[in-house]
Simulated assay, not measured.
Amino acid sequence: MASTGQELRRKLRENSIFTTVGVGDALMAKIADQTEHIDGILTSGFAISAHQLGLPDAELYTRSDNVYVVHNACAVVNKPVIADIDTGYGNAVSIIRSIQEFERAGAAGVIIEDQISPKRCPICVDETNSILPVEEAVGKIRAAADGRINQDTVIIARTDAMNPEEAIRRAKLYRDAGADLVQPISKAFNTKEQMREFVKSVDAPVSLVIVGWLEQLTFEEIEYIGPKIAHFALATVNAAHAAATNAVKHIAMKKTMRNMPVEQTNHTRLVQFLGMPAISEMEAKYLPDEKKVFGR
């Protein structure tokens, strides 16, 4: 079962940069969980929409759809899970129900953004969506902070403000409203120096999604910017799409699995990774001997 908010807070204090990988299903979450030097897991809205619906990240899935993915991911991992809960699925009152649902699913933290609903992921469109009036956005963060079941649940407030000065202003207000970390979008900045200035100005730990132009940065450059969390949100969905596309094209052309152009996990190894040995142990412990029951 996934780690708690208390454990996430402890790890955030210990790590210079807390590294997560974005996932859209339990299989990818389990891979990230069993990979050394990955600190936590982000259930990415983009990845969830892609993996579960085959659609772009435009809030086309419901809160229940999102909670279902988070619940399944949390059930098979030990590392802390941070859930991308989009706009919180409603107003300040609705967000209380939302954060509690994700807490019950096992999330140690949540990311809440200040776009209007339904949102549109900034990396899916040329122009970002409208953002809420700052008073309403602040109220939503305050409601989330007051309404969470466990006060250790980490709240990350994301602003989609495109103007760096406005992003800083909003981040400070969200911090004062109860956010534990603040998060800008990469489109609001053009250089590492601008992002570093944001981190230095907000007087709060910063969560940073490594997408767009940030994907070309080295780890040393990310360190220079200075975030507390670095989310590699699209790593698994991008890799899975490329690998699966090449595998399916090979079968379409060759009608064989031989000489696949992408690496294949051995079936026995995959079954073991998924946990079949533990299932077999439980069967031996709890199920009657089939020979005695069925006479064979």
Rank of each mutant, 00 (worst) to 15 (best):
S3N: 11
G5P: 09
Q6D: 06
Q6P: 00
R9Q: 08
I17C: 00
G24E: 06
A26C: 10
M28S: 12
A29E: 02
A29Q: 03
T35W: 15
H37D: 15
D39M: 12
G45F: 07
I48G: 03
Q52H: 14
G54I: 05
D65R: 00
N66H: 15
V67P: 13
V69T: 12
V69N: 03
H71L: 05
A73E: 11
A73F: 06
V81M: 07
V81H: 10
V81P: 05
T87V: 10
Y89R: 14
Y89I: 14
G90F: 02
A92E: 04
S98V: 01
Q100I: 03
V110Q: 08
I116G: 02
N129T: 06
L132W: 04
L132P: 00
E135I: 06
A137S: 14
G139Y: 03
K140V: 09
K140D: 10
A145Q: 09
D146K: 11
I155D: 05
R158Q: 11
R158P: 06
A161E: 12
M162N: 08
N163K: 11
I168F: 07
A171R: 03
P184Y: 06
N190K: 13
R196M: 00
E197S: 08
E197V: 00
S207R: 00
S207H: 13
I210D: 07
V211T: 15
Y224Q: 13
I225Y: 05
I225R: 01
P227T: 07
K228L: 02
L234A: 10
N238L: 14
A242I: 15
K249Q: 14
K249Y: 03
H250K: 10
K255N: 08
M257N: 07
V262D: 09
H267P: 03
T268V: 06
T268M: 13
V271H: 00
F273I: 00
P277H: 13
E281I: 05
M282F: 11
E283W: 02
K285M: 14
K285G: 02
Y286A: 03
E290K: 02
K292S: 14
R296M: 08
